[in-house]
Amino acid sequence: MSITIIEAVLIGLWTGICWSGMLLGTYTFRSLVLATGVGVILGDIPTGLTIGAIAELAFMGFGVGAGGTVPPSPLGPGIVGALMAIRGGIAPETAFTLSIPFAIAFQFIQTALYVIMSGNHEAAKRAIKAGSFGKFRLIANSTLILFIVFGFILGFTSAISSDVISGFANKLPKEILSSLQLAGKMLPAIGFATILSVMSKKELIPFMLIGYVASAYMKLPVMAIALIGTACAFFIFNQKEETKVESEVFEDGI
């Protein structure tokens, strides 16, 4: 099924709105949110949720970066990947791996936009000196406006050309598609490893083991593991405070 103009316009609008969240700090610009929206627009929420979740977990590592750096864009899997999976009939894992080049291309576009907007520093100064505060406020929102416009263009173009992209992907030999699917199943390991490398300390190894046992052996759902974790955290901190108080009393004794 190909995409109608109305669907393409809606996807364009959705992309623009979500991309603005990158600046507003509202986290709408994540694969999970983007792909779910595409699923809602195209009437296939389950597939949207699946590819969104796969990409969200795999891209988690990319979210961890120093301030101001641009990670690969979630627009890749969140929009292009979702389109391939929903209308192109490509397996979600395969669609995710195939969308990575798009994520990197969109990342370059975003960096380019920031570079282009560098002029707004001088423009803002000139507007203030001239006393035109209305113009200053417009300049202060210029990157946001640009993101919404470019987001619309990127989303709309991706939707319109998704037949071509999916058609090309479907012509790939079966071995390549299956290998890409395996890659899609392995890639979340990078996201998990990145987050663990930021959080982990030697003292946390017991909790990693509990998490593993709870999931692999006991098959507990993730919410249950999160609750066990919260219980452990409470327990540890209550104990720490008690020992602190005791040692303070002891010091007073000396």
Partner: peptide, 13 residues
């Protein structure tokens, strides 16, 4: 961090 590493270790599996 405690909650985080526990959940993520579980999710890996």
């Amino acid at each position: 961090s405690i909650v985080g590493v526990m959940v993520i270790s579980g999710l890996v599996t």
